[in-house]
Design a protein around this nucleic acid. Sequence first.
DNA 1: ATAATCTGACACGCCACTGTGCCAGACTTT
DNA 2: AAAGTCTGGCACAGTGGCGTGTCAGATTAT
Lengths: 238, 238
Amino acid sequence: MLCQILWGLLMDDSPKTQSAGRSSAGRRRSGQYAGKSASTRERERRTRLLAAGTRLIGRHGFAATSIDAICAEASLTKRYFYQAFEGREALLIAAYEEANRDFVQAIMQAAAPHLEDARKLVRSGLQASFGWVAQHPDEARLIMLEAIAVRGLIGQVYGERYDEFVSLLVGFTKPFLKDGGPGDATLRVMAKAAVGAIMHLCQGWIATGFRQPTEQLVDGMERIFSGMAQELGVRGWA
Amino acid sequence: MLCQILWGLLMDDSPKTQSAGRSSAGRRRSGQYAGKSASTRERERRTRLLAAGTRLIGRHGFAATSIDAICAEASLTKRYFYQAFEGREALLIAAYEEANRDFVQAIMQAAAPHLEDARKLVRSGLQASFGWVAQHPDEARLIMLEAIAVRGLIGQVYGERYDEFVSLLVGFTKPFLKDGGPGDATLRVMAKAAVGAIMHLCQGWIATGFRQPTEQLVDGMERIFSGMAQELGVRGWA
DNA sequence: ATAATCTGACACGCCACTGTGCCAGACTTT
DNA sequence: AAAGTCTGGCACAGTGGCGTGTCAGATTAT
């Protein structure tokens, strides 16, 4: 069960959200153009728009990013935008999904080698988290600041999407607990709170121009996880 | 030192941000109208606009709230809006300041009677936090979701404004520590993280319609604080 | 009473963005 | 070569909010 979730997060078997692309259903044409099939071209354009949108939103904010600007940044015209996305918010959501997947994958990859050693697991995970943010400031700003206020997205994220990540954290720690620890509800709240702590630190870090050294952030969060481990009575921690 | 900050937060000696109100400098008039002085009327209008803005932003989001709508909600005309605020964002910032002050005060008032007993202090503070959110959904949504993406505000908040609250938390815990505990930098990071954990839980709580019972949230956060206390070696905790 | 101010309502020009339509030229198939 | 499709650029009307201006009626001081 736990392995399935982990595998899913690592392998990116997401549904390749391409729903908005209306297949252009040409009748007697194979759709080849410039040596590429129609679907390939569509996908490439979508990718370029997504990258351009992420860059602009991350840099100037969602409110200040118009569809025209995104198209200019991607060197494409509005026609292709509406071919790939329902509207501005749809692009934001897609960009969120992609960046978030990348973020989680970075953490997973860093943590995967240390599944046996809880201490190393925590530290590597934290370093990967803050490291990713520093290396992807635009994406980080998008998923940690800009996407927060989007109604439809935020409900989903906090309600459902999140659950797999929380389940993963709970799944990681539960085997280490003596008598099963507190109830699942409390455990899940603690996991969410831990994620929130990291995200909040990242928000402040981003908003103040990454001035604080990464080490301080990692150290602080490590001590909080350490405290949680003690509180929960994780085997072989104290 | 600590007392000064606490007192400041409790007593609301804030600068009564009224900078935007241009005194109308009538020459030969006392400014009485409808039995009230000019400045009183101005303040009342500002208050009504602020309340209307908070309500609308909290309910429909900042992006969906126009100046016209705010004026309609407040039963005032645009003229008065621009008399009181520079623009839409200025109102949001003012609303944020006010709501946040109210939030912090609620926590302080609940925690104040238990300054000696760390356990009670934590629990009462947490109950007050989540309680305030549940009782002020519009204000909570504004300060926890809508205001996050506003550039000017967010930099200030995370960079400076925040520091007094963090200092307060650090000041609360430091006397309880044995050998001074970790460095101040780490301590501050931990305090910020704790605040972030609470805010994140609130965000999720708001976004999913307050479905989860308050008790679960309080319990989970209490255990995290408990872990931090153990980790830091707070006197008389374990 | 008269002049001066304040109030609330409306109207206007302005601007930026949206979403769609059109078209000439590049490219591919038959 | 001819017919058909794809591309990218532009133009257009429509929309909605913004910020300012005007003005009659209410209220107050002289």
